[in-house]
Amino acid sequence: MELLLIFISAAIVNNFVLAYFLGICPFIGVSNKVSSAFSMGMATTFVMTIASIVTWIIYYLILQPFHLEYLQTVSFILVIASLVQFVEMFIKKVSRPLYRALGIFLPLITTNCAIMGLALFSITREYNFYQGIIFAVGAGVGFTLAISLMAGIREELELAEIPGPFRGAPITLIVAGIMALAFSGFAGMI
């Protein structure tokens, strides 16, 4: 039950993109087409889940016993960077079209604050191992949901008559604002 609550809270109520502003760069950059947005979301979810497992192990089994907590930022980012490299090689091998679609944004998962933020959040909230994994999956699902919804809206926006200066990033931000308002309606759920 508690795990379910953590999942729903991370995926919908406290959506990473719309409530914590984590992962805004890919949210604006890769949300042109639903298909690539969805695969970006899946890649992020995958990296998030592995990252949460690895960072948990590093923090509680290495950093804490040796009182090296101040190395948290450095060690987490290194682990995440090498993980992303691994995922990139994996996708390149398995699916060429997917690799081409995600293009420059795959290496940028490294600097996707959602992943680093997730690792930091699960440490500050003192989640245990399983809670951490569920939290990561929930956050990933929430990210995928938000970025896919946004891509769907933006595909329609292509046909709309938007005033020139507002095309591109500005209208995306305004749409995200309205989405955030809608998502804040879930606040009473938990």
Binding site: F21, L173, A176, G177, A180, L181, S184
Partner: peptide, 8 residues
Amino acid sequence: ILPAGAFL
């Protein structure tokens, strides 16, 4: 104060 305000 809400996230929506920041985006808008």
